[in-house]
Simulated scan of single mutants.
Amino acid sequence: MKKNPVIGITAEWNPFHSGHAVMIKEIRKSFPDARIISAMSGSFVQRGEPAIFDKWSRASWSISSGVDAVFEYPALYVLQSADSFSENAVHLLHDLGCTHIAFSTESLDKNQLFDIARWMQTEDYTARLHQELKNGLPYSRAASAAINSFSNKLYQELIKPNNLLGLRYVETVSKYYPDLEVFITHRDMEHNISASDARAQLLETGSSLLLPPNIQEEAEILMQSGNYTDFNRYEDACLFMSKALGLSDLSDSGLFTEGLENKWKKEAEKTTFPQMLSGIKSKRYLYSKLKRISASLLLSGTKKPSP
């Protein structure tokens, strides 16, 4: 007897907006008998910041919109590079019994993504990647440069964030789980809804029309009652932690390489967190990576990470 499909989604729902609701409806239309489960980032998200709303509200909103169950994706994996974030998410969804993973892209379809993923397992790609790493680029940018040297047209498509994240999911499926099916929906780029736009509206006005109507009301209540992330206070906490920790604490944290902790400690004397990050940022250390380090420091303090 054939089992009903179990569709897995990696999500942050930060916040849950109308585009997310459309995606779930499309999955339901294609798989009416399926269970839909989500591996959702908890209090922190992959960009290295706290989510705007608590994880319970965000999970509840996805359940009310058609998801059957939400499992927290641990911060240990959330606060990683996009490659590690997506790979570990696929491992988790597979271990939870998913038969399919679903995600949205701006343009690329399943066959295109698998073609790219297979090429990235060839000697040609490896040689191009190693050359870019020798040029001093961090891994993610070296990978993009290697793709650009192979095909500028392909590179231009993979600049789009959901195309790129989709590729990372498919890479993991291709390497480890050939029986795991992939289901892709395409974002409406003419009426594109982004979580960053929704957050900006919420922080500026206390409301956002980009959220489904029932969620709009709940989000407004959370904003009015102060139950949302004050990013200014969060940045102050990050700066304070960097000032409070000694150089040996930073070295022992396991979060720094190539002597970055020395630059980190020096720049922690700046007045604001953005000023501190601006002093550290380089071609090799992008803001996203620095923010993930800051979040990890705030969560772990002087404790060394688990092996």
Results as ranks from 00 to 15, higher is better:
Ile7Glu: 01
Gly8Met: 07
Glu12Leu: 10
Trp13His: 14
Asn14Cys: 01
His17Tyr: 05
Glu26Pro: 00
Glu26Ala: 09
Ser30His: 14
Phe31Asn: 04
Phe31Leu: 03
Ile36Cys: 09
Ser38Cys: 14
Ala39Ile: 02
Arg47Ile: 00
Gly48Trp: 08
Pro50Tyr: 07
Lys55His: 14
Ser57His: 15
Ala75Phe: 12
Tyr77Ile: 00
Leu79Trp: 00
Asp83Ser: 13
Phe85Cys: 11
Ser86Gln: 07
Ala89Thr: 07
His94Gln: 13
Thr99Ile: 10
Ile101Val: 15
Phe103Ile: 14
Trp119Leu: 09
Gln131Met: 10
Lys134Glu: 15
Leu137His: 15
Ala142Glu: 06
Ala143Gln: 13
Ala146Lys: 10
Ile147Thr: 05
Leu165Glu: 07
Tyr169Met: 05
Tyr169Thr: 08
Thr172Arg: 15
Pro178His: 11
Phe183Met: 09
Asp188Phe: 01
Asp188Trp: 00
Met189Cys: 08
Asn192Ala: 12
Ala200Met: 07
Gly206Arg: 04
Gln216Pro: 09
Glu220Tyr: 04
Leu222Cys: 11
Ser225Leu: 08
Asp230Pro: 07
Ala237Pro: 03
Ala237Gln: 13
Ala244Ile: 01
Leu250Trp: 06
Ser253Arg: 02
Gly254His: 08
Leu255Gln: 06
Leu255Cys: 03
Glu261His: 04
Ala268Ser: 15
Pro274Ile: 08
Ser278Arg: 15
Tyr285Asp: 06
Ser294Ile: 04
Ala295Lys: 11
Ser296Leu: 14
Ser296Thr: 12
Lys304Glu: 14
Ser306Tyr: 10
